[in-house]
């Protein structure tokens, strides 16, 4: 490989980051040149100084609160949706009765249910987890169900001809077969988990980045809200990458051919 190609190869994953860095001066210039008021669009320098004005421990505190809700809600969602998918794969009847209900739940806007959940579940962590869970479980159920149903019928016949138990059929054939689908679902769901946590914090919280965005905007500290937004997107990105990393590390066979 030539040196040029080597550098290109190394730089490839950095490209989006480099693009963003290159855009920062342009952004700064436009804000300065057009005299954009900072409540419309703060300049990068204003965002940076807003970020520095808040103690780092406070940032970490808020970030951790959001991350915690997102991760716990996400875990809860996995714990509910995978068994639910297994049940639906095993029973045609339950698929017919449960699936329309799931669609109804999914198509009701979570933002609208959020205040109700707070009333029902109180003001603690429970409603926040519930909201995160509600927003993430649908893609997971669909992914897991589709994956398990995509198992080649020959393997199911093999299992039947060996008179293996249904539990083994699910555990040793169907679930592993669904892994590529499940990971696609997880990647969608993990970014939704952050959204869920933020929505929950908008409705009722005294901590967290969602709460901090709302708090900052109500005091007209727009650059500070932007800084919080950047924290949120970084968090989303990191979680997405983490899911991908887990897949590469433990389930590398399930990656599409060009990613291996």
């Amino acid at each position: 490989m030539s040196i040029y190609l080597k550098i290109k190869h190394k730089l490839q994953p950095m490209l989006p980051f480099i693009t963003l860095l290159a855009l920062l001066p342009v952004w700064e210039f436009i804000c300065w040149f057009a005299k954009v008021p900072n409540f419309v669009l703060p300049s990068p320098s204003e965002i940076i100084s807003a970020f520095l004005n808040v103690e780092i421990t406070r940032w970490l505190d808020h970030s951790w609160a959001t991350l915690r809700v997102a991760l716990l809600g996400f875990a809860l969602s996995i714990a509910i949706s995978i068994p639910l998918a297994v049940i639906m794969v095993r029973s045609q009847f339950l698929t017919k009765t449960l699936f329309p209900l799931l669609v109804v739940i999914q198509s009701t806007p979570v933002v609208a249910i959020a205040p109700l959940l707070i009333v029902i579940l109180g003001s603690g962590e429970a409603p926040r987890l519930a909201i995160t869970c509600l927003i993430t479980f649908f893609p997971l159920v669909v992914a897991a169900t589709t994956g398990m149903l995509a198992t080649p019928p020959e393997l199911i016949e093999l299992s039947k001809s060996l008179r293996a138990s249904p539990v083994k059929e699910i555990w040793q054939i169907r679930l592993p077969y669904a892994i590529p689908h499940i990971f696609s679902g997880l990647k969608v769901a993990v970014t939704l988990a952050i959204i869920g946590a933020v929505i929950a914090e908008f409705v009722a919280a005294e901590k967290g980045l969602g709460y901090f965005v709302q708090f900052s905007t109500s005091y007209f500290k727009i650059p500070q809200a932007f800084a919080a937004l950047i924290f949120l997107s970084i968090m989303s990105l990191v979680l997405f990458k983490a899911v991908h990393w887990i897949q590469t590390l433990y389930f590398s066979w399930s990656l599409p051919a060009q990613e291996k």
Partner: peptide, 10 residues
């Protein structure tokens, strides 16, 4: 033995 090998990819 099936038409397709239908091995377990993992």
């Amino acid at each position: 033995v099936f038409q397709k090998p239908t091995l377990l990819p993992w």
